[in-house]
Design a protein around this nucleic acid. Structure first.
Lengths: 337, 337
DNA sequence: TTGTAAGCGTTATCAC
DNA sequence: GTGATAACGCTTACAA
């Protein structure tokens, strides 16, 4: 039932004013050592805790940052958030999480309520459905640091922390070529998202360097789930010149592909190699573990947080573009020898 | 660069006072329709957004709730958080997430900073390491609703949302008995946590009902990861009377068990059945899919949020204890026929 | 070194 | 129906 005690309560007890208490508590230089000591002790004794809301109103800083992701229960996102939280907590920031469910209107609305709540920054991965970019301008015009992680759109003033998706696609494809695969298909999400397009470009580059002709029929854009993977591989297998490998921009697609291949008695990796993307936990648990491109999500989260801290600290005025290196985790689904 | 505009700006523009603007905006009955209309329109035109921090300071309500979990990147927790967020967002609450990493001091500290931040409630799963319960009293004494999900300690005034762990353990074990298993081992986490103890009690009850003698050598307490599972099964296999099944209180332990059994050429499920707990996503993706007890995490999160809303709305004064039903998902690792 | 008073953006309690 | 004014808890010129 403990009543909230304020600096006024301390002041009253000591027969001084709240201002003095405030100064003592904040280590203001011009205050006598004796009163400071007295105030400090009394504060502890009375179990004083500063009201952060009052502080926030006064300073305009809420010490909260908003983190927006499509779904929080996807490992990819939750591990990034873990990184953000780990990095920001020691600096006194709290992390507010919001989900867009890949809906643009939800994204816009969420950004607005976060802005109303006076967050000190917004770290987010934009929704797949987002086309209009006006709402981001709104954030910038309020001088609230805006940082995109993973899914990026090029907007002046917005910092980004991404992995080198081109390189990820390139290395995955090159690996398949090295395994002796000749007709490598590529399954990607909607390529209007930069990440998917970059992986696609990396894929093409790898083919080109090895003088393997690019064949459009081997490239499909689909949803990023198991069912979509199954459907896609069905389609590919109907081609007269069947592919002998798939580089997928999603681990779920890769899993669907593998399950379907198994159902059709096509041996992985002997007759068909598969590489996914994201290094979701399940890829390494599978009996037939799945080769995948790791996106170092924890680090991505920490880096996004660091970028925010720099901007919030005013140490940097311009936006920053951080690109992390992807790491190919080679596992059974693509290891022939 | 847009300056923040307040009700004073609107008032000035319309030559009325801020109080009137406030009333108009809040649909206060005693205000003329005309001024209300005027104020509303001007607010939109000037793009007025209320400052939630000011509101929060005034009302003492931050419209934030704190959610504390050991790790946010475990699917079990992230999906609960998803449920909480989905339920609370429409009610205007934001979700602040914090991690304890299973460290008691971190838990205490986190609760305190959350309390300082004036959260309107705390929803949490307590750390495994937590022994002392004093910090929870602190929350209650401030009249901040406190809700435990999954991991519970019995504290007066604290609401809990859990699944019926006893029933989960009971059904898992009964299922194994029905599969013809005779010597069922049980691997659990530290049973000083109620959830683990309840599952253990359910296990014993199922054995008892089927007149299978309880054998202490078949019960081990371990960490909840793959390596621990491997070690545990190694130990069990050294017994003269080897078990022919394992009910594990963790999917990761179950996975370790299965991997090790495979390494030793013991066939699952033909010669050895395995059941896990939590229904982690990977359990159904495996080629040898794992039978597991689903804890309906999304629902658990939503329910925790609902309990909070009831308490926050003052509709309920006493604590609530909600128990959800577990659901056994039978898969290959335990399906003999 | 300390006290006084204004202000952060609202809402609520009086008056008129 | 609308206007003053105080209050939420804190910081910070400006005085003293």
């Amino acid at each position: 039932m403990s009543e909230k005690i304020t600096i006024y309560d301390i002041a009253e007890r000591l027969n001084i004013t709240a201002a003095t208490v405030s100064r003592a508590l904040n280590n203001n230089p011009r205050i006598s050592a004796s009163t400071r000591k007295l105030v400090m002790e009394t504060a502890v004794e009375m179990n004083y805790k500063p009201n952060m809301l009052a502080l926030a109103l006064k300073s305009g800083k809420s010490n909260n940052v908003g983190v927006i992701v499509p779904y929080i229960d996807r490992y990819f996102f939750s591990s990034i958030i873990r990184g953000i939280e780990e990095e920001l907590y020691p600096h006194g920031y709290h992390v507010i999480i919001c989900q867009t469910f890949e809906i643009e209107t939800k994204e816009i609305e969420t950004i607005n309520t976060l802005l109303n709540a006076q967050v000190d920054g917004i770290l987010m991965s934009i929704s797949k459905a987002t086309i209009d970019l006006e709402h981001f301008k709104g954030v910038l015009s309020k001088n609230v640091p805006l940082i995109f992680f993973d899914r990026k759109k090029n907007i002046e003033g917005v910092s980004t922390v991404t992995i080198d998706d081109f390189k990820g696609g390139y290395e995955a494809t090159k690996h398949l070529i090295e395994q002796g695969c000749k007709r490598i298909a590529h399954l990607s999400g909607d390529r209007s998202l930069e990440i998917y397009n970059d992986r696609f470009e990396g894929y093409k580059q790898a083919l080109k360097e090895s003088n393997i002709p690019f064949d459009e029929r081997y490239v499909l854009q689909t949803k990023s789930d198991i069912e979509a993977g199954k459907k896609a591989i069905d389609k590919l297998l109907k081609l007269k010149e069947r592919p002998d490998a798939v580089f997928s921009s999603s681990d779920y697609i890769a899993l669907g592909v593998i399950q379907q291949l198994k159902a059709k008695n096509i041996k992985v990796p002997e007759d068909f190699c598969v590489v996914g993307f994201s290094n979701e936990p399940f890829t390494k648990f599978m009996e037939l573990s799945i080769t995948s491109v790791d996106q170092s999500t924890l680090e991505m989260g920490k880096m996004a947080a660091k970028v925010f801290l720099k901007q919030a600290g005013g140490r940097v005025k311009t936006d920053q573009k951080v690109v992390l290196a992807p790491k190919l985790e080679i596992r059974k689904s693509s290891s022939k020898k």
